[in-house]
Amino acid sequence: MIGAAGLQVLAEARWPEVGDAAPAPVPGFVHSGFAPLVVAVAERCLGRRYGDRPLPTGNRTAVVLISASGDRASAEHVRATVAGGGRVGPLFFFQSVPNSVAGHVAARWGLDGPVVCMSPTGDPWADGIAEAELLRYDGDAHEVLLVLVEQAPDGTPGEAVAVLLGEGTRQ
């Protein structure tokens, strides 16, 4: 048991795992490895539990994305472009909010629970579990895909962990 709400780890994934290269690009997201990292680890985790997408309607699966720094590479690109008097491309307005990649994952998999993005104030894992328990307790979600992601300071993809939490047993 993970927490008071009785959540179990139903599936999990990491990025990178042995043999991984950079995550594949994601259409609609540019310049940064943040969105590809989130998508890659989420797809891997959900695929381990469910195989193919989408999930059936009414699954009430939430997505909780936890990142202390968010998409560093995009933020730095926008800052430098504005500071240099340049024009920021429209895709940066879309992808500058982590909800956009979390929503992308939810749409691709047909997840119909809430999408929540958090910047942890303490332990990222504890904050994510607390949010997952709250979503389940309130009846907003049956399962929760929890994605913890941090982009490396040099703009390379970084590392991510995804766990699918809910009732039941691991497959």
Rank of each mutant, 00 (worst) to 15 (best):
A107H: 01
G58M: 03
H31A: 03
F29C: 10
F29L: 11
N59H: 09
A40D: 05
S32F: 14
E17D: 07
P120F: 07
H104K: 14
D71I: 05
V41Q: 01
R87L: 13
A130F: 04
G51D: 14
A73H: 04
A42T: 14
G128T: 06
R60I: 03
C117M: 13
S69G: 06
E17M: 15
A132S: 03
V30N: 15
A83F: 00
S69A: 11
P27M: 09
V88F: 04
V101W: 01
G47H: 10
L111K: 07
R87P: 14
V97W: 13
S69I: 04
L46C: 07
N99L: 10
L65D: 00
G113P: 00
R136H: 13
G58Y: 02
E133G: 03
E43R: 09
F29M: 13
L134E: 07
V105C: 02
H31Q: 08
L65A: 05
V101G: 10
V63C: 13
A75R: 06
V82K: 01
W109F: 04
A75E: 09
G58E: 06
G85L: 09
L111N: 04
G84S: 11
G89Q: 03
H104D: 04
D52W: 10
G84E: 05
L135K: 03
G51P: 05
R53W: 15
L135T: 01
A102C: 09
L134K: 12
A68I: 12
R60V: 02
G58W: 03
P36E: 15
G85P: 02
P90T: 09
V78L: 06
D123I: 02
V18D: 05
H104G: 05
R79K: 15
A21I: 14
G110R: 00
I129V: 03
R48T: 03
R136E: 08
G28R: 08
D112W: 06
D127Y: 02
F94V: 11
V30T: 10
F34Q: 00
L135Y: 01
A106L: 00
A132D: 00
G89P: 15
P90F: 09
G85Y: 02
G86D: 04
E143H: 13
S96I: 11
P54M: 04
P98N: 03
V78Q: 00
D112T: 11
L134F: 07
G89D: 08
L55P: 06
D140G: 15
L111M: 12
D71P: 02
R108Q: 13
P25Q: 15
G70W: 01
G103L: 07
R44M: 08
G128H: 13
A73Q: 12
E143V: 14
A35D: 05
A107D: 07
T61M: 09
H142M: 10
R44H: 09
V18C: 11
P114L: 06
V105L: 08
A21T: 15
R48W: 07
E143Y: 05
A141L: 09
T81L: 02
V116F: 01
T57I: 15
P54C: 08
G28W: 01
A141Y: 07
L111S: 08
V105W: 01
A24K: 11
D112H: 14
V105N: 01
F94D: 15
T121H: 07
V115L: 02
L134D: 11
A83R: 03
I129R: 01
